[in-house]
Design a protein around this nucleic acid. Structure first.
Lengths: 230, 230
DNA sequence: CCAAAAGTGTTCGAACTACACCCATGT
DNA sequence: ACATGGGTGTAGTTCGAACACTTTTGG
């Protein structure tokens, strides 16, 4: 047992909440679920959980992510700590929010049923408990900045994706239309994508070529002081 | 008393740590103090304190800032939550870091003695307890980004400042030399500074004109979709 | 009179923006 | 044959980068 240095201080429940974002049909979606316990049981909520003893906050977030997606080692980053006194209607809880970007195709729909969860378009959010709506808007503004300077967007796409797909992803993140030619020109000049032979015929008769993100190339460029920007 | 919804969960000590930055002699400085209690009593540490019951995390940070600077309503922003299990050698403590930008001239040196505190150049940091060094480097990278897009730098300067001063501040933040003419041209084009009649003769015989930051003009520009960038 | 910092414009190239038509193919 | 989405190039403009000399004045 460690010595009790801080015994006169107060302790708090600490939770993590996960903003799990996916991309589908040209829209960002967030994974929500119907809360299974009081208070506000049955209301829409982010996926979350309490930090356990002996577990770092990152580990807690990672655990929650694995539990509710069935996928390990997801891309994940801290959004921040939310500490208003009355933010939780039950007792006082401090929450640390994390966002994660996932490829919705990999997502098993069994999980959806198990947790009473649903993918909801971010343009069409229901009322959320506590400060969860604020956590989502904070996440979206972090994502806008981050996606402009780091290649995090690829986490939202399948291994193989087409340029129209990638462009519509960035359009969803930035909430603005991009010029097709300029977008492709820029990507081309960065030389971090590999064009495949194969075409995706799902979205058009002609079909669009598949590409993959070449992380090795990107990392090599990084060493030379390259800075991704889209 | 609120009902005990979460009783089966564990609670944690939650602290705030403040990265208080000042600017002096062309260098960023951080306010450190010698820790007054065990463990690691006497070691260099950031200013911090435990979150109290009935106090939000922001309020705790704000309280600590006021206590250890003697100034109210300082510019302050969250850096993030630090939650490694063994980050504190005493007991398990989760800490939320905040950075604050202050004008060192306003700073009463009495406070320095009272707290055994000192301004230390960021280029010359001593060994710090726990993960405080990481908190500082995280802060500096946030500041780099933030200063490039929002006029937060002015918080580090007196009300009246000169252009050479402002430039050397940005050089300190970005850790790079800037071209005098390009810097002034850009500022000029933004039209958010007011030139005063008065000159600062401290740093040269000729003297440099004082300027002030015009927040009204800046806010008006913001409404029109203007985006500060330096 | 001289050292030391303040102030001032122009040129060049890179990067961004705007813009319109042909291509491939499934039905 | 045609509707649908995929793919391509150029010209104009803006923005950032590089660069050197004159001014002021206290000592």
């Amino acid at each position: 047992m460690s010595p009790a240095f801080y015994q006169q201080e107060v302790q708090f429940y600490v939770a993590v909440d996960c903003i799990i974002l996916g991309f589908n049909k040209n829209e960002l979606n967030v994974l929500l679920y119907k809360r299974k316990f009081e208070p506000l049981k049955g209301q829409w909520s982010l996926m979350g959980g309490f930090v356990k003893s002996g577990e770092s906050i990152n580990e807690a977030a990672s655990r929650v992510l694995t539990e509710c997606t069935g996928i390990d080692d997801l891309f994940m980053e801290q959004v921040g700590a939310y500490g208003e006194v009355t933010r939780d209607l039950g007792e006082r809880v401090i929450s640390v929010a994390y966002y994660s970007l996932i490829n919705m195709d990999k997502f098993s729909s069994e999980v959806l049923e198990e947790y009473n969860a649903a993918w909801v378009k971010i343009s069409d959010l229901p009322n959320l408990i506590f400060d969860h709506a604020k956590m989502i808007t904070d996440t979206l503004s972090i994502l806008k900045r981050k996606a402009a300077t780091r290649p995090v967007g690829f986490n939202l796409l399948p291994e193989k994706f087409t340029l129209p797909q990638l462009q519509s992803l960035y359009e969803a993140i930035y909430q603005t239309a991009l010029d097709k030619r300029n977008f492709r020109k820029k990507l081309n000049s960065m030389d971090i994508l590999e064009k495949l032979e194969e075409k995706d015929k799902k979205s058009s008769k002609r079909g669009a070529f598949f590409y993959t993100f070449n992380k090795e190339k990107y990392d090599k460029l990084l060493e030379d002081g390259f800075y991704f920007s889209l």
